[in-house]
Design a protein around this nucleic acid. Structure first.
Length: 925
DNA sequence: CGGATCACG
DNA sequence: GACGTACGTGATCCGG
């Protein structure tokens, strides 16, 4: 059966910039930067593997001058030059495309978009389907029946519906809308005062641009009418600029663009030259099997994986010996649950070198069949012959100081091993943490994703082994042959990832961050999770009842006020009651869904105007939140065996280096409201103990004073002054003595704004003042503390030049959006870049203190233990008898483990720690 | 499963 | 008055 051809056209420039900005700097041995080359190559390889299309071409821009710059010299004139380390990569990327045997299309005097339009038209004429790979909105005008787009950023297909969402008109009218709205980034003039929304509305009303311009006199709004009449020629010019030319002469026919396998030797040569060793391993997959006699590459591994099932201690012994001999072993556990602390150990896999691994079953069930005996008697073995003997051997290996244990998210395995009495796993490395330190949140750190990315290997998905949804089985029910293939691969892949990632630490100067900040956190967090915190269920249940009663009363009152019952928890129904039925003023519709907004800000304004219903809903919401998220849910999270709640900390989740806490989240337990704070009374110390809470005072502002080197702030901190009052006195020119509390509150908001990468709008919103007033405050602030502006400029520049920013301790935080063409997205990336070293620096400091603490406690002979971390606060459980010794020790450890110093080692800003003690968290705080 | 809302630092 | 609003998280609920 003939299948219609399918042509994929890749917007090469978009791909290049995406590759460049999504990867940290990389260089090949001769110093040439290659991060964009590498990213581009992997993206194109992935596209070739995933795409169902049989024709492919990559289209490039040929230069800056095009027929459009002839027409209108300002067009795209303010585009910044590409980063200097990207320029030399353009030529290499064209080499990459050629090495992959993919045609490159480009034409002097035209943009890539025009070639794409032209080739798309020809392909359609020959009955082919077309997919354009790009996230450039300018290409959306080409979408039609048989032509769609693939946005590689979001991995999302763009068809007529998506174009309609973006522009408010069908693809055929996109150029008209763009002609009216213009584009400040590309210098397309458009008509002043008309943006995307208005343009779409006008075009929808009048049909097309020419009709609109002809009938502009009918526009009711005087200003809009005048603008349209005065700028009609600008609109026509704009249309010529944005409309793509699809009538270029073509140099290749559709047949010339047919997908062909690359020549393996050419491809190998290219990959070797650029040092893409991990990609070399994929050449066979891309080009077909290598001819006999091809020399093995550096990343060579057995052609067939050497995986073994180990069911006797006698068979296990040589594996342990092999691991000792190698000095490195990858370890992975299989369990019947994702709750590591309580999971049953089902099996363990070990990998001793790439491609060689074993699986030791500990608790597999006999195969399950509906009617017994139908498959004959179940035959073993389903577990290793001598469980205790095997665990003893394994325990020695795990504790052997001469053997590095490598795991992927090894914190999970530490809990599982602890569950079978194996307490010591050291030394250890974690490939998930390595990946996080190297690449931050540029991509996920799951093993499957990393295997694909770094090894070009598609791993067996868990669901392929255990199924999913209702029919999912636990791992102990998986037949041993499948369990072996899955589990051994996990250990194998972990070891291979370690070989790729560990050397990058040194090359990219991240050894210190990994070794002194994140790796030591792994066993420490495991111990904190294991310890848990004691929670009093009676206290929580009593609160639940109180909250339920108040909610019931409020609900009755709300329904009465509305005149009928409705679901108060439904923002949709509430919005209809408030704005459609009651006709209250001030309704805002969300731009996305068109639903009425009913958030606290909106309700608070209405309540302030004397409306009772919104005020009651605010109260109801507070109780609903406290009850469902905390008092009800936390009771369920108490482990009956320990009577404690055990959270799980995320070490590789946040963009800045902070921890996260989940299942349950113990980093967002209420404190700001009176009712909410009561929940902390349920977090208690066991009999004979106390909880101690110690938190850093103003740590992020201190970091600002340090990184931006602000003399006035440094002095204020050095002298222990009230920092917000000082700010108010500087900005508003009032004395500190007898200050108006309103001014101090405003200064405090400005200080927070600085941490967040201040904007007049954000500050205005926070303080309920006008944008102009907020702007004036910021101006006054920057005049008083001029170093802040220099810091912000410096950070933005660093982000643009390197693609990342750094904390004072060397942690790298990628800033992928920093050169985004969309000014809103770019501004957000800039604020993130400004905030990241501050938030991340504070995270580094508390991590250092946490890592130091167990040793400090041991040296002092104390048994107190760390239970919780909440970003700038540590909660420790301590026997009453140790209290007097612990409090000063904890304070000193947090305050003095890390010092903020200048390049001569002098302290720039001191740290301070507030400590509280009590029988509950509420009391201690 | 995405969006709205709201708890924390 | 075009664009959309401060930085970083996770849990719960609704509604398609």
């Amino acid at each position: 059966m003939a299948v219609s051809p399918h042509l994929t056209l890749v917007d090469g420039s978009g791909y290049i910039f995406r590759a460049y900005h999504s990867l940290p700097p990389m260089t090949r041995p001769d110093g040439t930067p290659v991060n964009a080359v590498y990213g581009f190559t992997t993206m194109l390889l992935k596209l070739m593997a995933d795409s169902a299309s049989d024709h492919l071409a990559v289209v490039f821009d040929a230069g800056r001058r095009t027929f459009r710059t002839e027409l209108y010299p300002a067009y795209k004139a303010q585009r910044p030059e590409p980063p200097e380390d990207l320029v030399p990569q353009f030529a290499v990327i064209r080499e990459a495309v050629r090495a992959l045997n993919v045609p490159c299309l480009e034409r002097e005097g035209f943009e890539a978009d025009d070639l794409i339009a032209t080739y798309a038209r020809h392909a359609r004429a020959q009955g082919a389907r077309v997919t354009i790979v790009s996230s450039d909105k300018d290409l959306m005008q080409l979408v039609r029946d048989g032509v769609d787009m693939l946005d590689p950023m979001k991995n999302k297909t763009i068809g007529p519906t998506e174009v309609m969402e973006k522009f408010g008109v069908p693809p055929t009218r996109v150029v008209d809308v763009q002609a009216l709205a213009g584009d400040s980034v590309d210098n397309v003039p458009g008509v002043p005062g008309i943006g995307l929304k208005t343009a779409a509305q006008l075009i929808s009303t009048y049909g097309d641009l020419d009709t609109l311009l002809a009938r502009a006199g009918e526009i009711p709004q005087p200003r809009r009418r005048q603008m349209l009449q005065e700028h009609a020629d600008d609109a026509r010019l704009s249309r010529e600029l944005v409309r793509l030319r699809d009538d270029l002469e073509i140099s290749e026919t559709l047949a010339d663009l047919g997908l062909t396998k690359p020549d393996p030797e050419t491809l190998r040569a290219f990959l070797s030259e650029n040092g893409f060793r991990s990609l070399l391993a994929r050449v066979e997959a891309v080009c077909g099997p290598a001819p006999a006699g091809t020399p093995a590459t550096a990343a060579a591994s057995p052609a067939v994986d050497d995986y073994h099932l180990v069911t006797t201690v006698a068979a296990l012994e040589p594996w342990i010996a092999e691991a000792r001999h190698a000095g490195v072993v990858a370890v992975d556990t299989e369990t019947n649950s994702l709750k590591a602390r309580t999971a049953t150990l089902v099996g363990v896999s070990l990998a001793t070198r790439p491609g060689r691994a074993c699986y030791i079953p500990f608790a597999h069930q006999p195969p399950h069949s509906g009617t017994l005996a139908l498959d004959g008697p179940a035959t073993g073995p389903f577990a290793i012959d001598d469980r205790d003997g095997a665990l003893a051997l394994l325990g020695e290996l795990l504790a052997d100081p001469g053997v590095l244990k490598v795991g992927h998210n090894i914190k999970f395995d530490l809990h599982v091993f602890k569950g079978v009495g194996l307490d010591t796993v050291a030394p250890l490395d974690d490939t998930m943490v390595l990946s996080y330190v190297l690449d931050g949140t540029l991509h996920g750190h799951g093993m499957d994703e990393l295997a694909e990315r770094h090894l070009g290997r598609t791993t067996i998905p868990f669901e392929a082994v255990c199924g999913k949804g209702k029919t999912q089985i636990t791992f102990d029910r998986v037949p041993l042959d499948k369990a072996l293939a899955y589990a051994a691969e996990d250990a194998d892949v972990t070891l291979r990832l370690h070989k790729v990632l560990r050397p990058r630490l040194l090359a990219e100067r991240l050894v210190r961050v990994y070794e002194t900040l994140d790796r030591p956190m792994v066993p420490l967090l495991a111990a904190m999770e294991q310890a848990g915190v004691m929670v009093d269920p009676l206290r929580l249940r009593a609160l639940s009842e109180t909250f339920a009663r108040r909610m019931g009363d409020l609900e009755d009152e709300i329904h009465g006020l509305a005149g009928h019952p409705f679901n108060v928890a439904s923002p949709k129904q509430l919005g209809e009651v408030l704005f459609d039925e009651m006709g209250l003023p001030g309704g805002k519709r969300s731009s996305k869904t068109g639903a009425w907004s009913t958030d606290a800000q909106v309700l608070d304004t209405l309540a302030g105007d004397g409306h009772v219903l919104p005020a009651r809903v605010l109260d109801w919401r507070q109780y609903a939140k406290l009850k469902s998220t905390y008092t009800d849910a936390l009771v369920e999270d108490i482990d009956p065996a320990t009577r404690r709640v055990h959270t799980t900390y995320g070490l590789t989740t946040t963009s800045t280096g902070r921890l996260s806490s989940n299942d349950p989240n113990l980093q967002n337990i209420p404190i700001r409201s009176e009712d909410g704070r009561k929940i902390r009374e349920a977090f208690v110390a066991p009999p004979g103990h106390r909880l101690v809470s110690a938190d850093y005072s103003q740590i992020e502002l201190r970091l600002v004073a340090h990184v931006a080197d602000i003399k006035a702030l440094r002095d204020a901190f050095a002298h222990g002054q009230d920092i917000h009052a000082l700010t108010a006195s500087q900005v508003f020119g009032v004395p500190i003595e007898g200050m108006d509390p309103l001014l101090r509150r405003r200064a405090k908001a400005i200080n927070f704004g600085i941490l967040y990468g201040i904007s007049a709008h954000g500050l205005a919103r926070q303080l309920g003042i006008t944008r102009g007033e907020a702007g004036a405050f910021i101006e006054a602030y920057l005049a008083r503390f001029p170093e802040i502006q220099a810091y912000m400029d410096r950070v933005k520049e660093e982000a643009r030049a390197k693609g990342y920013v750094e904390t004072p301790f060397g942690r790298r935080i990628p800033t992928p959006g920093i050169s985004d063409r969309n000014p809103v997205a770019r501004a957000m990336a800039e604020r993130q870049a400004i905030n990241a070293p501050i938030q991340g620096g504070a995270a580094d400091i508390i991590k250092r203190a946490m890592i130091r603490l167990p040793d400090a406690l041991a040296e002092a002979g104390l048994t107190a233990r760390l239970l919780l971390q909440v970003h700038d606060e540590l909660i420790v459980e301590v026997p009453k008898t140790e209290l007097d010794a612990l409090v000063p020790l904890l304070r000193r450890t947090m305050r003095d483990t890390v010092a903020l110093t200048d390049d001569k080692g002098r302290t720039t800003v001191p740290l301070e720690v507030d400590v509280g003690v009590g029988g509950s968290w509420a009391e201690a705080h």
